Simulated scan of single mutants.
Amino acid sequence: TTPVIGLQEKPHSFIGRLRHFVDIIDPSTLFVSERRLKECIKLLDDFKHGTLPPGVSDLQLWEAQKVKQAIIHPDTGEKIFMPFRMSGMTSDEDLRSFLFFSHWLNQSHNACVNYANRNATKPTPTAKFLQGYVGAVTSAVSIAVGLNVLIQKANKLSPATRMIIQRLVPFPAVASANICNVGLMRHNELSEGIDVLDNNGNVVGSSKIAARHAIMETAFTRVALPMPIFVLPPIIMSYLERLQFLQSNRRLLLPIHSAVCLATFSLSLPLAISLFPQMSQIEVSRLEPEIAMATDCKVVTYNKGL
């Protein structure tokens, strides 16, 4: 049977969200042509209006949905700039090098990804975007670099203790930096609120409380994101480094380590962003009184962003 094509994954199903976001981060969607995108959008529109041409398969519809959801913002209906789509997101695992330029470049990219995939039901003035960008990148880089420098200068600690702490520092550094990045790049939502929708998709009001939930949920995914990256590669590499082949070919260690990190990140990204549905729900009783007065619905929906 022909599937029902919607704009969101099933919010109650983690596996459904995971499969959805695996599609969203597929790097091949970065290279979809404008013509192909328009074909996909038209195919979905035809399906919605019951005017599909004969011979269109379920597979073609799901592929069209994958392309559209990976490229088109659900609020604005416009294309997300290619490097800032979720499929263009890069790994933070190598922050242990703590090079200032690499941190600035990485956090700048993260800031743009957070902005491009935000809830966009309210416009963000250029001045507020720039304020958020400067604040996000400055705080994130300061946290990441500062924590490592602090440990390196902790001369009172024994070398063994310092080494253990240095191995543990990257995760809280990255997690804290990611939280600051999300919060500051999307701070306009906290002051302006975001639209909440009833069961029919109609806007019933603008809620700052829903905005706070959206940003908190997104920030939590950014905390979960680096967890596998800091745990799995060291374990995998400790096993691989014992292999006779790699002991005889030490020059292969760096490319293999990079490949392991990339594979781990490819796994951790969809797992992290699948923790919460993009279109989240919240009880009306938890929102502002004026929203409760504007609808008979018990639960409303909002775009959490990614």
Rank of each mutant, 00 (worst) to 15 (best):
1 T>V: 14
2 T>H: 12
3 P>T: 04
3 P>Q: 07
4 V>T: 15
10 K>E: 15
13 S>C: 09
14 F>A: 14
22 V>Y: 09
24 I>D: 04
26 D>P: 03
29 T>K: 01
31 F>H: 10
34 E>I: 00
44 L>P: 08
44 L>N: 09
50 G>H: 07
51 T>W: 00
53 P>D: 08
57 S>R: 00
58 D>N: 03
58 D>E: 06
69 Q>C: 08
69 Q>N: 13
69 Q>F: 07
70 A>C: 13
71 I>P: 04
76 T>Y: 02
85 R>P: 04
85 R>V: 09
87 S>A: 15
87 S>R: 08
89 M>R: 10
90 T>A: 14
91 S>L: 15
92 D>I: 13
92 D>E: 15
92 D>P: 13
93 E>P: 02
101 F>R: 15
101 F>V: 13
105 L>A: 12
106 N>W: 01
107 Q>D: 03
109 H>P: 03
113 V>G: 01
114 N>Q: 15
116 A>N: 06
118 R>L: 12
120 A>F: 05
127 A>F: 12
134 V>F: 07
139 S>D: 04
141 V>S: 10
143 I>Y: 01
148 N>I: 03
148 N>M: 12
148 N>C: 02
149 V>E: 10
150 L>K: 07
157 L>N: 10
159 P>Q: 11
160 A>D: 10
163 M>F: 12
167 R>W: 08
168 L>T: 02
169 V>W: 03
171 F>T: 12
171 F>N: 09
171 F>A: 11
175 A>N: 07
177 A>R: 09
178 N>H: 04
179 I>K: 02
183 G>W: 15
186 R>M: 11
189 E>T: 03
190 L>D: 06
190 L>W: 06
198 D>P: 02
207 S>Q: 05
209 I>D: 01
213 H>D: 14
214 A>H: 02
215 I>N: 08
217 E>T: 13
224 A>Y: 03
228 P>G: 10
230 F>E: 05
231 V>R: 00
231 V>I: 11
233 P>Y: 05
234 P>Q: 06
235 I>Y: 03
237 M>F: 02
237 M>V: 03
238 S>T: 08
239 Y>S: 12
242 R>F: 07
244 Q>Y: 06
248 S>H: 08
252 L>P: 04
252 L>I: 11
253 L>F: 04
255 P>T: 13
258 S>K: 13
260 V>C: 13
262 L>K: 14
263 A>C: 09
265 F>W: 04
266 S>I: 12
267 L>R: 08
267 L>S: 08
267 L>Y: 09
269 L>T: 12
270 P>R: 10
270 P>W: 10
271 L>K: 12
272 A>Y: 05
276 F>A: 02
276 F>C: 06
277 P>E: 00
278 Q>I: 05
281 Q>S: 12
282 I>P: 04
283 E>K: 08
285 S>D: 15
285 S>E: 14
286 R>K: 11
286 R>W: 06
288 E>I: 13
293 M>V: 14
296 D>M: 12
297 C>S: 14
303 N>V: 07
305 G>N: 06
